[in-house]
């Protein structure tokens, strides 16, 4: 059955295909438009460069009035990414707006990779290294970039 959430997601998919943002891609899984797989390429001139980070996005029937659950499947060493891949990003929680679509969500996460917010850490080690030992932070990030090629 086609519900408003599913129809909106069809439109999101169409827009993503017609006007694809650079460095991100996503598509619904074969048999369920409510679950998407996505990839974010590490932004240039950041330690994440060249990484291919996979994510899953799960929507509910309340979309777009409620945000989807977005999670990294690839291991990501980042101040705002939890060990289980969960992402701490305001627009996916209290700053959500029903005008966002998949394209906006993925580009926001991509810019979070470039600009971490170490003041609301989901990974305290990453936040501390980002603030106090940038060289070690970049080394740990590069290791997860290498890891992203394999998984």
């Amino acid at each position: 059955m086609s519900t408003p959430a599913r129809r909106r997601l069809m439109r999101d998919f169409k827009r993503l295909q017609e006007d694809p943002p650079t460095g991100v891609s996503g598509a619904p899984t074969d048999n369920n438009i409510m679950i998407w797989n996505a990839v974010i390429f590490g932004p240039h001139d950041t330690p994440f460069e060249d990484g291919t980070f996979k994510l899953t996005i799960e929507f509910t029937e309340e979309y777009p009035n409620k945000p989807p659950t977005v999670r990294f499947v690839s291991k990501v060493f980042h101040p705002n990414v939890y060990a289980d891949g969960g992402i701490c990003l305001d627009i996916l929680q209290n700053r959500w707006s029903p005008t966002y679509d998949v394209s906006a969500i993925l580009t926001s996460i991509q810019s979070l990779l470039s600009d971490p917010n170490p003041n609301s850490p989901a990974n305290s080690t990453a936040a501390q290294l980002y603030k106090e030992n940038r060289r070690e932070y970049e080394k740990r990030v590069k290791a997860c970039v290498e890891q992203s090629f394999i998984d």
């Binding site: 086609s2 519900t3 408003p4 129809r7 909106r8 439109r11 999101d12 827009r15 777009p64 005008t99």
Partner: peptide
Amino acid sequence: CAICRVQVMDSCLRCQA
């Protein structure tokens, strides 16, 4: 309409359904 992405002069996705 930035919420359902249909032109405001047409019916929204919910009403179309």
